[in-house]
Structures are given as C-alpha cells and as structure tokens.
Simulated assay, not measured.
Amino acid sequence: MSGPRLLAGVTVPLVTPVTDEGEVDGESVARLVASLGPGVDALLPALSTGEGGLLTGRQWRAVVRAFVDGADGLPVLAGILRPTTDEVVARARVAEDLGADAVVATTPYGAEVSQDDMYGHYERIAGATGLPVIVYHERAVSRNVIELDTLLRVCRIPGVAGVKDSAGAANFTRELVAARPGVPVAQGLERLLLDSGPVDGCVLALANVEPALCAALFADPGEQGAAELKDACEKYGLDRDDWFRALKTELKQRGVLRSDREVLPMAGPALRPERRTPS
C-alpha cells in the first residue's frame, strides 16, 4: 500500500462495538475512532481484542466495513482469526473488496501444523490478494509455535509486510529484530513493550482507552514509563481473561460505546480469545 508504513507507531487492536441485540454498532464505531486522537497510526479490527474468533462471517464483514468507512484516513488492518488456510484466504479476499489496507493472520490452528505448513500458509495468503499480509505471531490461538528461522523465511515472502509479536517473550522479539527480518516488527503486549528492543511499532489494546499514553510511551518511555504502563494495565484489567470486556465497560462509561456487551455473551473458556498474560 502507499502511504504510512504498516506497523509504524501505534496500531490499535480495536474492541468490537455491538448493540444489545448483538449487531455491529456503526455509531459506536464512529465515536471510538473519533476518540483515539492524533497519536494513533493504524486501526486493527477483528483480532483478539475485537473477539475476532467469535465473530460470525456476517459480523466480521460488518465490523471491517464499519472501520474502513469510519477510518478518517487511517490504514485499516483487517484481523482474521480462522483455523485453516482456505478460510483465511477467503476472508482476505473479502477484506480487499471491503477496502482494507492489509490483513493480519495467525498460523493455521493445531499442534500438528508443521513449520513448512506455516510457511505455505502465508505464501498462499500473500498470493491470494493484493493486500499486504502481517503475521500475527502468537501461540494461544493457534496452539503452535512458529520458529524464528521459519518466521524469517516467511518475512521474505513477497507481500508479507510485518510481524505483530504477541507470543509473550521479549527475548524472542529482540532476536527477531536483531535478525533484520526486512519487515516492521511491532510488540503486541503492553507489559513487554519497554523490554522489546528497538521495535518499529506497538499494537496495544490499551490504546482503545489511553491512545495518547501509548504514543508517548512508544516515543519516549522516560524514567516513569514502566510505572505508568504497569498502573494502566492494572487499572483497565488488561491481564484479565476478558480484558476486552473491561475495555468495553470503560468505553461505555465514557459514552463512547452504547453497550459493553460481548460479541458472544457468556462464552466459555474454550471460545474466549487467548489470555494476554506473558508466559
């Protein structure tokens, strides 16, 4: 894409505003984008903070479309949390049709997925559309681990444009950056931001409610940065299993969202997004 470099600065993995009836709330989407201010560099709907794995196909299309329509000039990186390559490719093509600027996807789901399968997965996604592909490096959703050598190979695939590192190990992030992958690397967990080395950006759920703080900490953490970040994580419950609900509740109290309803109320542990506590 032309324009801002993907994953540079602060990208917001957005909550998914829904009405009390469970429909995507376009009015709240518009207010949420307006509340973010000038410190935000990109929008990322439908990933874990957006309960992306629980969205129906109709809801997923609605939320991506709503943020594309309301982006106000910001790039929109469409999150895709689906278990198979075929499903990810299908949604990537829809994201392109909807006007998204990039897609963000995990490896295929399952402990049995091989490193070659992971490479082939991203190769297929990158070849399926004209959109840049960002690797969502994690382990709790996919239940597998992409090794550093494999990830570096993936980063050399034409069309792969960055890595959102949320696997929970700052030493891995530092090793990845030191290996010069040739694409931007962003830290995706608040508590590891200040220990990740010279990353290109950050993708922080905290930015839904404290975008200016996230921008300031990324630009220059200063002596008080670690304490401010720790206090904010505790204040907004970002290490809770339902951290996305805590953010929604805060945004509802501020009048940004009309409802703090979850996408799938009372979802059991097996259906919830992954935990955010680093391991």
Results as ranks from 00 to 15, higher is better:
T19Q: 11
N171A: 14
D260M: 00
A212D: 14
A246C: 09
G57I: 05
A30G: 13
D116I: 04
Y136T: 12
E210N: 06
A170P: 05
R275G: 15
R82C: 11
V89L: 11
R58E: 15
R261D: 03
L47H: 11
F172T: 13
G130Y: 07
M266R: 14
R65H: 01
R245E: 08
M118V: 10
R156L: 07
A126D: 14
A167H: 13
G70T: 02
G3R: 02
M266W: 11
L74H: 10
V103L: 09
F218L: 11
V141D: 13
E112S: 06
L229H: 07
G37C: 11
G39L: 07
P83I: 08
S259K: 03
D72M: 07
E210A: 12
L271M: 14
R91K: 12
V185E: 10
Q224L: 09
G22F: 09
G52C: 11
L194E: 00
V104R: 07
R272G: 13
V12L: 00
F172C: 11
A42E: 02
A46W: 02
G120P: 08
G52A: 12
V63Y: 02
L77D: 07
G70Y: 00
E21C: 09
L77W: 08
D195K: 01
R275S: 15
V199F: 02
R276Y: 14
R139V: 05
V256H: 05
D101M: 01
G162D: 06
V18W: 03
V154D: 09
N171I: 12
I134E: 05
P211R: 08
G50C: 06
L152N: 09
D241I: 10
H121R: 14
V209E: 04
S48G: 07
V141Q: 13
V113S: 06
E96V: 05
R174K: 15
G130F: 07
N171L: 12
E21S: 15
P132Y: 01
G50V: 01
R143M: 06
Q187R: 12
A78S: 14
L229R: 03
V15H: 02
L55G: 05
A111G: 04
G222A: 00
C155E: 05
D220G: 01
A161H: 04
P83E: 10
S48T: 14
T129R: 08
D242W: 03
K248E: 03
K164W: 03
D200V: 00
A205V: 00
R91F: 14
V145H: 09
L7V: 00
L251C: 03
R254D: 06
Q253D: 13
A90C: 03
V24T: 04
R180M: 08
T277F: 14
T249N: 00
R31A: 15
E250Y: 01
Y109S: 04
V88W: 06
A92S: 15
A167M: 13
G182Q: 10
L36K: 04
R180G: 10
A90F: 04
E228S: 12
V256G: 04
A71K: 04
E223W: 00
V76N: 08
E21K: 13
A186H: 06
D101Y: 01
S48V: 05
S35I: 13
S259Y: 03
G37P: 05
C233Q: 08
D72T: 05
V29Y: 02
V113E: 06
L229G: 10
A232T: 05
I80W: 01
G159V: 12
L47K: 00
Y122Q: 14
A232C: 07
M1S: 13
E112Y: 02
A227I: 07
V113L: 05
A179R: 15
A270E: 15
A90V: 04
